[in-house]
Write a protein that binds this DNA or RNA. Sequence first.
DNA 1: GCCGATTTGTCCGTATGTATC
DNA 2: CGATACATACGGACAAATCGG
Lengths: 244, 244
Amino acid sequence: MPKAKYVEIYKDLKMKIETGTYEFQELLPSENQLILTYDCSRNTVRRAISALVTDGYVQTAQGKGVRNIFRPALRTSFTIGGIESFKESAVRNRQIPKTEVLCFTEITADQKVSGRTGFPAGSELYYLQRLHYLDGKALIINHNYFLKDVVTGLTKEIAENSIYEYLEHTLHVSIVTSKRVMTVEKMTEIDEKYLDMGDYNCLAVVSSQTYDKDGIMFEYTQSRHRPDYFRFQDNATRRTIEKI
Amino acid sequence: MPKAKYVEIYKDLKMKIETGTYEFQELLPSENQLILTYDCSRNTVRRAISALVTDGYVQTAQGKGVRNIFRPALRTSFTIGGIESFKESAVRNRQIPKTEVLCFTEITADQKVSGRTGFPAGSELYYLQRLHYLDGKALIINHNYFLKDVVTGLTKEIAENSIYEYLEHTLHVSIVTSKRVMTVEKMTEIDEKYLDMGDYNCLAVVSSQTYDKDGIMFEYTQSRHRPDYFRFQDNATRRTIEKI
DNA sequence: GCCGATTTGTCCGTATGTATC
DNA sequence: CGATACATACGGACAAATCGG
């Protein structure tokens, strides 16, 4: 599956940046040199470099070259963008995840649910509340809404493990796009009951709509995070394309 | 300046999506048709489509086509990624911005400042505190650190307007990359004094490091937002490139 | 200040692979 | 199976920015 040549080049360059083969602020070899190194076309090295740019590893400058702007200290966050399940990110950070299913029901979307989630009114849904632990601490409460037509046969047992694994490996539903909105909200009674909130009276809230490859939105999730363990990282670039 | 052909195609397609020429869930014309429409090469239309994908307007599926997944209701947020100044985003949302400079000093980075901001110890910096109003409401407190070598001649008067305008139009410093981290933090005395926090005891905090085209980090800013007016939007895609 | 070499940015055309219908 | 669609890859050409002599 991971066959594309530009991906291999991306990985190799990223590894070399992370391990210090190129120093911070140093220019990488020019595109022409990389063409020789990897025995490929210019487009292919440029795709790899482009991916490094969007990930914040390097920045390019016409007439100069490609500069390494990676700083290791910054790259230890709970999430780095992309789409990643709770379990995946926990494993990546070498933490021990656990999930408790607080509530598992089936509902039909009324106007209110429809307005909140974006599902059409009348949609048949699973509604779950799940509590996520990391290294024994309750950190996140998730409110999940799944479209029954797509996420067929969901059970409490599956929900205690990884729903995303079930989606990808059993149902072969591939997650393609996810639209997320981050806000800060007041704590609710449920939050207070299950999360150890200390002095905090608000949480970091991530609401997301997830689409499969057929363009069907099959999931709406509201993730409520304990503030002291929430961290979201992002690399922005002044785009050539003006957004105004 | 905005001459690139793929940018024009991007803009045209985006406009057509936003104005309903293509309906939600509808497939756009195929790449081959777009090649004829815009009289260009395949690579060029693909670059435009690729930009639409990263902006969450469409999603592609091999063998099927390019699907419009744009929903107008979702696209009204304070920031949509990218790098945008306070004034720019205010104007875009048709709001009236005002900025009050609470503090304007020059400092030399000690170990503590260096650790917090990422500037090397000994750097000569401007340090500012600025309060941003929108439609008369105090919403954001910014703590700005600017490298004096790059941001030469900064004054209180400039800081009351738009520092980014000064950077781009007067100093011709172009912002290229910005690394951001979003967290939720407890309110400080300063926050409480200047922002109308109501019941909230925490804020949304965006910390960012900004680089110019020479790869020099010339700005560190911590933006502290009143929770009820903070909203960050993001489109994630399951990348071909595995991050694990 | 100009010129030429280097480097990235844009664009074109073509070929092949793979997924969908 | 064939037609259509996107994904990957190659190679070449010229423009624009940078830098050193």
